[in-house]
Write a protein that binds this DNA or RNA. Structure first.
Lengths: 206, 206, 206, 206
DNA sequence: GATGAATGAGCGTTCATTCAT
DNA sequence: CATGAATGAACGCTCATTCAT
């Protein structure tokens, strides 16, 4: 009846907007000037909010960093779970390419923040990933050259993540170089795939 | 013949011992609690020294970090230059194994510190490495499957460093697992070596 | 009508009161124990304020001293400009008395602080004073015994300032002794005035 | 008969030389960079002595300043006592000139130090001076225009000291200007001397 | 709630003073 | 005694956190 229906939980909305702008400010400061330059007052100023309000939503400075970390972890989880969901329909070589694409996309956004806060999801997510990837690899056991597939899964994930993470940090431009991406995919393929199913792309005779 | 040989100059000794204990304390604090937790007073306390003494040997806090960084950089340079010197006498597969062994050894000591302070030798050393490695690859051009050998050299070094660095940080125990090391070597071999010279170690039938 | 008129903006008031108490504390410490004994923590303690608050209003310790100096300079400038404004309407002997009175009043307040911080208006004000005083002396050229009137003006001002300044520092009680003031005025009169217009006050036969 | 006779109290000599160089260093530092820049370590370094030795002869930093002050006071006392000794043989006008000359000479040496440390002989010496000067003035009572001769003596001494002291600090060059000295002498003469014995130097008709 | 002035523990650094050599 | 390395209280200043408004 009244316009009430439109005015949905104004408080919650305001709160959410505040939290969002605070987290956004935190992220920007870390990305631009590093973790050491992060101060609650500065966050509040950049977010256009008072310090007091900041402390209404975050118990202390560390909580800001944790929230940023959590969001990064969530972004990773979401993207990787989507990837895992697509996995069954993908051949090994397509899976590898999808994996690299996904990681590159994830590391493109704010590499500085990512490096500063880490992902923070050491156990649970990592485990889940390992399990799903492990299962996937089992279903392709015949095409895989590695005898110890769980170990291979781990090394595969670590290698992809490490290489892309470090490159994002040190030479971000490379991330967008298709030749580089091809090299990375190839590296992973050659590691995982049995010779018969290997990509034919690079060859000394080519 | 006199016991003179054992008598070391007391002043120099004290000084050196002090500097060492200060650097050691600095390293421990960074390794255990991170760069942000580093404070000159804490360093002094941990080193069993007064702040004043600390400032007798280091002009400011940053100098502590720089010294730690310099020591890491020196350790890396020494080890990698030794490795490069051995390269010419090594076959590709041996070279890869030596490379991995060297990096693993370098990352075993204080991965946290290494991550926090970096190596500090971004340009010169890295460049020198790239050049020498590039030259080495050219002399083995026939055994290498990658058409773009400079790019391959870079990806090879990045992959090795990234994988070992990140593993040292996240799962240091793995560094000492021979199976893991074997996987890493194999990953690099398969990426670099032409099929004819590929390792026969892993096989789906094994 | 409402009591609004009495209600002052609370924020501005608090701020102003804080600044005042900080400056007051600074002044007291300098006066009692000297500039060397001035420390921001002590100022804060004496002012009944936290160091943090002090730094909300003053960017650093030097700013405290500068503010004190500025206030002294302002007090001097105001008083001396008022005096200069009155000069044209005054005879030489009255002018001298007014001059002495003004300086004595200015030096009565906190001689220690004044000595420690100086006035800070070395060039501009001093110059302006010299000019005005010089002009005044010219209009009374006939009554003045000194041939070099600009030099006389300078020595006059220096002598008055120096004598009163040093007495304020070393024997403040004298400043309120009318006999002493009379001596000072007489000293200046005898120096400046031609014999015909000399005060008849003191005489060996009196 | 051995050369012993020449080697007089070597220890005392060494000590004395040390004390001298320490005091000299202290004086130089104060004169050049101010009291605030005085530090025991710096004094020791400038004096070519170890801090430990410094503390052998001076119980603390303040003692350094006190010694410098004492030496200044002694220099003043000596010079003024010599002056006082000459007083009886001097006419009033000569006495005034001698007084000014003496003070100017005393203030020429290290005005910065003098101002920083003061003279430190407030009571005894000042009193002694006042007494002798008072006595001298009494013997010339007939030539003096001031009825209250003790007060006149004090104002005379204060005016001379203040004017010369402040000028030494602010415009040291003036100290060597004969015209300025003449003005100062004349100021003091006119204040003290009865009209009959007044200097004829300056006159409006000259 | 929101605000931002106020707080004070703690930081990096200095320097008067001590004491083992 | 001379030395100067060692000490640690104290300084100027910052910033995470609180709380009166």
């Amino acid at each position: 009846m009244a316009p009430k229906a439109l005015r949905k939980k104004p408080k919650q909305d305001r709160s959410k907007a505040m939290v969002e702008s605070i987290i956004e400010a935190t992220t920007r400061i870390i990305e631009e000037d590093g973790l050491a330059a992060l101060s609650t007052n500065r966050v509040a100023r950049v977010a256009g909010v008072s310090v007091g309000s900041l402390y209404q939503y975050f118990p202390n400075k560390e909580a800001l960093v944790q929230e940023v970390r959590a969001r990064f972890a969530a972004r990773f989880e979401t993207a990787l779970l989507e990837l895992l969901a697509r996995l069954p329909g993908l051949g090994l070589r397509e899976a590898i390419r999808a994996w690299v694409e996904t990681l590159v996309a994830l590391h493109t956004e704010s590499p500085g923040v990512h490096n500063a806060v880490g992902t923070g999801s050491p156990e649970k997510t990592h485990h889940a990933l390992a399990t799903v990837v492990g299962g996937y690899l089992e279903t392709h056991a015949g095409e895989i050259r590695r005898p110890d597939r769980p170990l291979a899964g781990r090394v595969f994930m670590d290698a992809a993540e490490a290489l892309i993470h470090n490159t994002a940090l040190r030479e971000p431009a490379l991330l967008e170089d298709p030749a580089w991406a091809e090299e990375v995919c190839d590296l992973l393929e050659r590691y995982i795939l049995a010779d018969g199913s290997t990509s034919s792309t690079p060859s000394a005779s080519a």
